[in-house]
Design a protein around this nucleic acid. Sequence first.
DNA 1: CTTTCTCTCACCCGTTTGGAGTATTGACTA
DNA 2: TAGTCAATACTCCAAACGGGTGAGAGAAAG
Lengths: 213, 213
Amino acid sequence: MEAPIRLVYFEDNKALREGMSFLFQATPGFALLGAFENCKNLKETIAAWQPDVVLMDIDMPGLSGIQAVPIVKALSPATQVLMLTVVDDADAIFQAIRNGASGYLLKNTSPADILTAIRDIHRGGSPMTPSVARKVLLHFQQPKPGGEDYGLSTREMEILRGLVKGNSFKGMADELSISVETVRTHVRHIYEKLQVNSKTEAVLKALREGLTR
Amino acid sequence: MEAPIRLVYFEDNKALREGMSFLFQATPGFALLGAFENCKNLKETIAAWQPDVVLMDIDMPGLSGIQAVPIVKALSPATQVLMLTVVDDADAIFQAIRNGASGYLLKNTSPADILTAIRDIHRGGSPMTPSVARKVLLHFQQPKPGGEDYGLSTREMEILRGLVKGNSFKGMADELSISVETVRTHVRHIYEKLQVNSKTEAVLKALREGLTR
DNA sequence: CTTTCTCTCACCCGTTTGGAGTATTGACTA
DNA sequence: TAGTCAATACTCCAAACGGGTGAGAGAAAG
């Protein structure tokens, strides 16, 4: 038998907190260290217990769940934070994730699935409600909304990729076995097409708009 | 009663394909339009049927599932593609996502959960196996894996942020109301600390390691 | 068979950067 | 109080870059 998952739970709704607490206590494999209605004693609690998993409601009076995440991660880096909320808001999701949360569930998730999610997160997974996951994915694939094509030629793309790697004109000239002057010409054409006027700007634009893929 | 989910299934393993096909046919709410062992007739199939959801195995002979995704999305943008695979490989995941896949399940997922995932994806969610989701999240919060500090001073950080915005030395000098020479001095100190030797390299390093946050 | 595009190379000119020093001031620290 | 460091500024030099102009060879398109 494995060691139980040492859990701390933050939830301001009393009924829900007590209900879930009962569930955690009744389920083998879980050790509920504490259930709190706010983050008042957050630091002391986390620092002292170093729990495996923190189940954190987002909407709480006082310190919000999102603000609490970085504090938890700072005091106990190994602790996995699972956010639980009713608000399916993109900004909140990303802030929580950037702050170090490892999972994100909406409150319509069934108690059984929450138990499963806690086991998942403890095993190194990142349980996410599908609608939340979709928002995350969109930030990955949308980098090209206007997806403009600037009409760069093959050679120009090659040069641009070189710039993005941080190469100098001379370096690329050698690499491509052409004259530095030729590289400069290509670069000037690239600048015109991208409407920039320096290496750095070209690199930034290329990176931001994913031109090098 | 709602319209059934119109589904197309690609899977090279015959036993698995037939088993899942039976399940789809037996489950109310699902309409299996076709199940194929490879992507030979991918274009015709997708173009003609415009399915709601495509369940796509990644490891297939011939055209791989990953290569198939962009084709599906091109021919039928509204179709949601759910990847199904044994390989829990980060690169494969990101390629599939960038190509337009909306969900990603490992093959150890139970048939019941696959059915749920298909309903989720059809409702606009992005079902993801927790271990896959973790890989995705890491790319968001990765900012500090080696999280080096480099010990940049306040002023140096300010200058670095300027570089990342594409400013020239002169531009920053004006902005900060200091001499260009001073900017140059700061920049040289930044180069030493970051161990680079050009503006572009500094910008790239700053971006990659999230130093400007 | 011209026109257009891409890739190639060259020269000029002025500005911006990189590299290496030196130096003054003020603030913090041992 | 002496030492360290950040921030400021300057000088000299050489390399790299940005902008302008021109031009030849080959391929693709009209």
